[in-house]
């Protein structure tokens, strides 16, 4: 209902009609607010800035960035080296904090959380996949995947169920007792993906997850990430240099010198899950 309509109704001579219109106006406003809340972006960056000072030099990898990312989307972050991709990814993952601006994740402003609260928030909301896998070398594949579950109040039996399910999902359940040095790069990255999804986080961030893999392994990993995005409905944000990998993403963001240059939608994105 427009303001003009409301004014017209107010000028009406019929008191009952006037009351009905006011009631309708309130109802519609409340409905719109709820709908806006329902469709609003899950990740909201407003004027997000990150600067690093080293000696007398100040570097600004992110400079006043505004960005919305919807829940369940698969976003590829592209850009040249030093454009701020990994910085943005680290801020979203909560392993770095913005210098200024706000970073809302759902109802939480993660930029304002203390270190311990941020750690707790990460353990619940974030799964991180690194370019170089970053598995703990003295732990087996199983133990690496179990590592984030130790923070949960779960019995050993429940932990075992979750780890087994995650390893099975990434297709590496036959290598659970292998140490990272006994696995190929592709297998290590699968273990890292299992570790990222085992806690069932809302957001999975991946920093060049195929950067250290051959073409065939890279394709397998990207298919797996797309499968996680589609089947589990998890929000996936991936930094990549390779334009070919962006076909798996639903949305591609280009960053340069800390600013968002352009937005585009991929035609090959997973169906039905992107705005």
């Amino acid at each position: 209902m427009t303001d003009e309509a409301l004014v017209t109704n107010r000028n009406s001579d019929t008191p009952s009609t006037d009351r009905t219109d006011v009631f309708l106006a309130i109802t519609v406003t409340a409905l719109c607010a709820n709908l806006w809340r329902f469709f609003m972006a899950y990740i909201e960056c407003r004027n997000l800035t990150r600067t690093y000072t080293k000696a007398s030099t100040t570097i600004t990898p992110l400079d006043g960035l505004d960005l919305d990312i919807e829940e369940g989307s698969f976003v590829a972050l592209m850009g040249p080296s030093g454009s701020g991709k990994t910085t943005l990814l680290n801020l979203i993952a909560g392993i770095d904090s913005p210098t200024s601006g706000s970073l809302m994740m759902g109802a939480v402003d993660v930029g304002k959380l203390s270190r311990s609260k941020l750690a707790l928030w990460r353990s619940v909301n974030i799964g991180y996949i690194f370019q170089l896998y970053n598995l703990v070398p003295v732990l087996t594949a199983y133990e690496n995947v179990e590592l984030p579950l130790l923070l949960r109040n779960l019995s050993a039996k429940d932990r075992h169920k979750k780890v087994a399910a995650a390893l099975e999902l990434v297709g590496i359940d036959d290598r659970h007792d292998h140490f990272p040095r006994q696995l190929s790069g592709g297998q290590e990255q699968r273990v890292a993906i299992a570790r990222a999804i085992v806690t069932d986080p809302k957001i999975i961030v991946a920093d060049e997850p195929t950067g250290d893999l051959d073409r065939a392994s890279a394709a397998e990993i990207l298919s797996l990430l797309q499968q996680i995005n589609v089947e589990l409905g998890r929000t996936l944000i991936m930094v990549t240099h390779d334009p070919k990998t962006t076909k798996y993403a639903g949305r591609i963001l280009h960053l340069d010198k800390g600013r968002l240059l352009e937005l585009e939608s991929s035609t090959a994105s997973a169906p039905g899950i992107h705005p």
């Binding site: 311990s116 974030i126 570790r195």
Partner: peptide, 15 residues
């Protein structure tokens, strides 16, 4: 250093 950073990324607090 890296192992501890990984653990902290997974949600292990500094403490």
């Amino acid at each position: 250093i890296k192992d501890h950073a990984i653990m902290q990324t997974l949600g292990y607090t500094n403490g």
